[in-house]
């Protein structure tokens, strides 16, 4: 399907769950995102159009395959589509990924599998999972909005491939990255840095 989203603008964020995903958890993500961005956030109904592909011998979902399917959905101009899953994700060349997106793309995909404390043998903590999930979604949307990785470790666009760094970087875009986001994207007071 044709991509119609305009990379530099965002009018709404749509969340689509992929695979088994508790409704309550998805709603919590919407609430969490709504606190961070000014644009409307909406939970889409599940669709059977999305199929996951398992990487051979790895029991992990192929993230790029999933991203391509999301990007192929009819996404309206100004909408950023976020696919979230509890499947552990990877791509053939990487052992795992937290999320995937293309610079300027219309969609992004985020896995909560490795953001959950229980993945590391720790007690479940839904609040921690939500905070990390929202941070990772904002990071990937940042890529959709043409932002590259940032060298500021406290910025949401800082490169992170472990949960410690996800926690360390916090929930704000830095003074260099925030001005590059479309005006009116962040919730009032969320562009503090």
């Amino acid at each position: 399907m044709e991509l119609v989203s305009e990379p530099s603008s965002v009018e709404a964020v749509h969340l689509l769950t992929v695979g088994p995903f508790p409704r309550r958890m998805a709603e919590d993500l919407i609430i969490g995102l709504s606190r961070e961005v000014r644009v409307p956030c909406r939970l889409l109904e599940e669709t059977t159009e999305i199929e996951t592909q398992i990487l051979p011998d790895r029991a992990q979902v192929h993230a790029d395959h999933l991203l391509r399917q999301l990007e192929a959905l009819p996404i309206e101009r100004g909408i950023k589509l976020v696919g979230v899953t509890l499947h552990d994700m990877a791509i053939p060349i990487f052992t795992f990924v937290f999320g995937r997106s293309r610079l300027g793309g219309p969609a992004t995909v985020v896995s909560l599998a490795r953001l959950r404390p229980e993945f590391y043998g720790l007690p479940a903590d839904p609040a921690v999972t939500m905070r990390r999930g929202v941070a990772e979604i904002l990071h990937e949307i940042g890529h959709n909005l043409e932002l590259k990785h940032c060298r500021n470790y406290s910025c949401l666009m800082f490169f992170s491939h472990d949960v410690e760094t996800v926690d360390l970087r916090g929930m704000s875009f830095c003074a260099s990255c925030a001005p590059l986001l479309p005006a009116g994207f962040l919730a009032p007071g969320r562009n503090r840095y």
Binding site: A90, F96, H161
Partner: peptide, 10 residues
């Protein structure tokens, strides 16, 4: 080595 650990590669 393939597949890469993203952190290790970075």
């Amino acid at each position: 080595t393939k597949p890469f650990d993203p952190d290790e590669l970075s």
